[in-house]
Write a protein that binds this DNA or RNA. Structure first.
Lengths: 224, 224
DNA sequence: ACCTCAGACACGATATATCGCGTTCTTCGA
DNA sequence: TCGAAGAACGCGATATATCGTGTCTGAGGT
C-alpha cells in the first residue's frame, strides 16, 4: 500500500495539529485516526521519530520526562509548537492548504473503507487453515504411514493448479465482459489487488514455512 | 467478546510455551497468534503483567534489562522456566492436557464462525462495492485534475489483467516450491478453492450485474 | 544536463510497560 | 454452607521507543 503521506507531508501535518495546543504523541495518533475516519492510523513508529526530529530542529518543544535517547522513559511527554514552529507553518501556508484539501479528499474516498473491509474478511480465512492444521496435528494418522506423501503432494498440486487456472479464466471472462460495457473502474483494479493479496497470504499460510523466516530468499532482486 | 482464556489458563499456557525454550515477551505474543491462526492476538497488556507475576512467583526467570517496575526499560528481556516453573507444569499436567485440547477446539469453532461469517460479509460487501462502483462511475472525480477518461475502462482492464497474471505466477511458484518439499496438502487445495471463490465474489461485486449472462457460463461442468 | 548516492522520510514490525474495566476465583466470616 | 469482599485475572486502550525496508529528494560530481 502506498503511503498516505508523501515525503514531508506528515511532518508538516503534525505541526498543523499542534496549532490546536500541546499534545502527547499518542494523542496525535488518535487525532489523526479521527480525522481520517479510522481509515488511516499512523503507527507509533511513524509518529515518534518525526516528533524527535522536529524537536531536534527546534520546531517543537518536548516537556517532562527524559530524553528519548536515554533508557529513562517516563510516560506522557507533551509536545508544543515553538515560535520557529509557528514560523514554519506560516512560511509554507500554501503547502498546508493543499495538504488539508488532499486529506479531505482521501477521507471522502470510499475505496479505502472497502479495502479495509475486504482485508478484514479475508484475514478470518486464516482461521480455517489453523483449525484444519490443528486437527491434522493433534490427530496423527493411524497405523504406519509408508511414504505416500510425495505422490500425494504432487497430485494435489495438480488439483490446485486446475483450480487456479479456472479462476483465472473466470475472472478474465468477467473482465472482458465488463470492458465491453466500459464499466471496469479503478475500484475494480484496487479490489482485485487487495483480494488477491489476501488470497495469496491465506494460501501461503497452508504451506509450512517458519514464521521467523530464516531464509533470506533473494526475491528482492528486481526493482519495478 | 468473551475472553479466549479463562481464569488461570493464559498463565499456564505461557509456561507451556516456555517449555520450547527461553522467549521474549513479544515472541510469546507472535507464537500465540500463530497457534490461533491469527484469530486471537493477545495484547501486550495481557502478556507483560502475566510474565511479571510469574517472575514474582519464581516460576520464570527474567534476564538482561532493568526491572519492569522502574522507568529504565532496555529492549529485549528474555524469560525462561525455572525449576519451580517446570514443577508447576508437571504438577498440573492434567490441566495442561485439557487446556491444549480446549485451545484446539476453540480454534476450530472460531474457524467455523468465521467460515459462516465470510459468506454473509461477502454478500453485504458485494452490495457496498456495487454502490461504490456506481458512484465512482456516475460521478467521475471532482477533486483531481481533469482526466481524459476516454478509454479508461480499457486501460484499467489491462491493469487488472496484469495483476491477475502476476498473482497466478506467484501462486504457481509457491505451489512448485511446496511440491518439492512434498507439503502440498488437501488443506491447501481446499483453502485455495474457498479463497478464490470469495475473491471472485468481491471482484464481481465491483462490476455491474450482467443480467444478460446469468450464472450459466458452464462453470460446473468439470469433474473433480 | 545527467547520474548517483547519501540523507530524510513514511511505515510496519518489533519491543515493553501501565491503567482501568469487567469477570472469575478464593477466602473467610456469618 | 452460603454469600460477599477482595485478590487475581484477561483484555483492550494508552503510552513510548527502536529497527529495517523501501522510497524520495537534493547536493555534489561527471
Amino acid at each position: 500500500m502506498p503511503p498516505v503521506f508523501a515525503h514531508g507531508e506528515l511532518r508538516l501535518y503534525l505541526l498543523v495539529l499542534l496549532l490546536d495546543g500541546p499534545r502527547h504523541g499518542y494523542e496525535l495518533i488518535t487525532e489523526l485516526t479521527r480525522r481520517f475516519g479510522g481509515t488511516y492510523r499512523p503507527s507509533a513508529g511513524t509518529i515518534y521519530p518525526r516528533l524527535a526530529r522536529l524537536e531536534e530542529e527546534g520546531l517543537v518543544r518536548r516537556s517532562v520526562p527524559g530524553e528519548p535517547g536515554s533508557p529513562g522513559v517516563g510516560r506522557k511527554a507533551t509536545y508544543e509548537l515553538t515560535p520557529a514552529g509557528h514560523a514554519e507553518i506560516e512560511a509554507r501556508f500554501d503547502d498546508v492548504k493543499r495538504l488539508e484539501r488532499s486529506v479531505a479528499e482521501t477521507v471522502r474516498s470510499l475505496a479505502d473503507e472497502v479495502r479495509a473491509d475486504v482485508r478484514d474478511t479475508m484475514r478470518g480465512l486464516r482461521a480455517e487453515l489453523a483449525a484444519a492444521a490443528q486437527e491434522v496435528r493433534t490427530r496423527p494418522r493411524p497405523g504406519t504411514a509408508p511414504d505416500p506423501r510425495r505422490t500425494q503432494s504432487n497430485s494435489l498440486r495438480h488439483d490446485a493448479e486446475a483450480v487456479l487456472q479456472r479462476f483465472r479464466n473466470d475472472v478474465l471472462a468477467d473482465l472482458r465482459e465488463a470492458d465491453v460495457a466500459g464499466t471496469v473502474s479503478a475500484l475494480t483494479v484496487e479490489t482485485l489487488r487487495t483480494v488477491l493479496d489476501s488470497a495469496r497470504s491465506a494460501i501461503r499460510g497452508t504451506l509450512p514455512h517458519s514464521t521467523t523466516s530464516p531464509p533470506g530468499r533473494a526475491d528482492r532482486t528486481e526493482p519495478e
